[in-house]
Design a binder for these strands. Sequence first.
RNA 1: GGCCCCGUAGUUCAGCUGAAUAGAACGUCAGAUUCCGGAUCUGGAAGUCGUGGGUUUGAAUCCCGCCGGGGUCACCA
Length: 606
Amino acid sequence: MWPVHEGCCMNIEEIINQALIAGIPQLYGKPVSSDSIQLQKTKREFEGDITLVVFPLLGISRKAPEITGQEIGTYLQEHVREVVAFNVVKGFLNLSIGDRFYLEFLNHALDEENFGIMPVCEAAETVMIEYSSPNTNKPLHLGHIRNNLLGCSVCNIIEATGKKVVRTNLVNDRGIHICKSMLAWQKWGGGETPESSGKKGDHLVGDYYVKFDQYYKQEVSGLIESGISREEAEKKAPLLLEVQEMLRKWEFGDPSVIALWKTMNEWVYIGFTETYRRLGITFDKIYYESDTYLVGRDTVLEGLKNGIFRQHPDGSVWVDLTAEGLDEKVLLRADGTSVYITQDIGTAQVRKNEYHPSRMVYVVGNEQNYHFRVLRLVLDKLGFPWAKTLYHLSYGMVELPEGKMKSREGKVVDADDLMDEMINTAREMSSGLGKLEGLSPGEKEEIFRIIGLGALKYFILKVDPVKNMTFNPRESIDFDGNTGPFIQYTHARIRSVFRKAGENGMTIPEKTRIDLSLNEKEKNILKMIHDFPLVIKDAGQSFNPSLIANYMYDVAREYNQFYHDYSILKEADSGIKDMRLLLSVLASKVIKKGMGLLGIEVPERM
RNA sequence: GGCCCCGUAGUUCAGCUGAAUAGAACGUCAGAUUCCGGAUCUGGAAGUCGUGGGUUUGAAUCCCGCCGGGGUCACCA
């Protein structure tokens, strides 16, 4: 287990839970199991803060729900300092927690350097997380954006739960698809380079990938017209045979093919680096398939020798997974070249030996669910005890209103274009509001960038990863309501209060008095922020950034209600004014930290 | 066809380790600015939680069937 968070001593559910485990046996003479203690937030329409559902305890109390609730409520009020009142409605015991608890919590949370975030200690376990995993034959598109944002955010979240994280990228830099753009460039490129054409390298290479597909389709339909079946034509098209030959040459190290491959990949990497930089994506370690596929190949051949795999008469190597309810899968082609899974078998071993992670997470789309089941089973059959530590973080596809994106046909939302578009929208919107007067053009651009990317990232991350999502470029992204800019706005607004306080010569104290009484809005914010560490923990355990995103929205909305209803700086009672200032400090910190976990920055003004 | 995932207001999404009248946002209609930032706030209308069974004191949530959508079952990645 991981170390207990400092803030846990301030967790009110935990305090009540402990009291019940001790108290119920006193009341009813029987022990209580912790899963029959159900604590939840009290619904808005009832009086109280925390509710105990008493139904599961009736078997122990042997009394009616109302009576049981009364008895337990009385016990808690007498034995738990924080419980100041209670009421029972049907089978629900609603407990009121004193303001003092929340005020002490406020002081306590402000004391912590990083409230909600656990420090990573030397002895912590290591989690290796792979994301992005681009092919070097085309630029990044919206689907990759979801992958990168998810991966990056999950890394942040897991790190915030006190674990070491190795952010890793596996570049698909080899294979038949890479050869396709190479061959097309060789045939029809006329020596075009990023410099000569002014195109971003990844876009240039991607254009040739599209071009290959166009010519290939022409060839296929030509063959079909001459009387050959589609299936036959797709296998016998001259371009396909040529590209297969190129792949063989690559695997046998043909110098001219390797040289072309290096040149074109380099163009792509320069382009990718730019896209990653703008998106704010980083890696600790980058693996290349071209470095690891041979390890996989050797492993497969050894497995063949040991009788784990079978060879067909044509020379191809297979694994039989019919006993596991799957099919036979090819691991090496008849001509000896490697397939996709071959390199994954190698990469996993290289990683294990290099970092010894306790968990290896793969952020990969749900179209590869089957692939990862196979990979685990194959590694297991090979006798690697760590095979079960593989976890496929499978996420749904991003579709367009007109259907799936198809990069071969050029029907995609390009990552670079999309970021430009978002930033432009932010620019137009901000200019209309005119709140950035007096800032330099550079400062303004920085704010537009933060808002545009914030809108994009939040839009994608607020959706549960397992779900498919439709992206309508024109309508999908808003700056109002449950959006990134709404939350960013809340932060900017709070910061503005502090600036104003400074201008008026006010200082923010270290601590609040704890003998104040809180209004409903103040209490609601504190109750919500109290849950921050728990939300991070849940998000980490379920690899689900959308939990953080939706929580951030709730915090921002709650704060905005408070802000609307009460004045901070104009409050006459200095104790209350100080408390509201500190409450705002904590809220702004939590918003900044939480958004940071999503990879979203928050501006000082906007 | 086998296996896997999804199905909640017009739309985009929460809620899914069972609990009180299913929540937001966008859109729509109606309001709130001499006052710390109106990218805000308040209110109205809008849902047989795909469908039919089952388990349970209690089901949007768990189990089974069916319907609808998607994915996958390549010597593609």
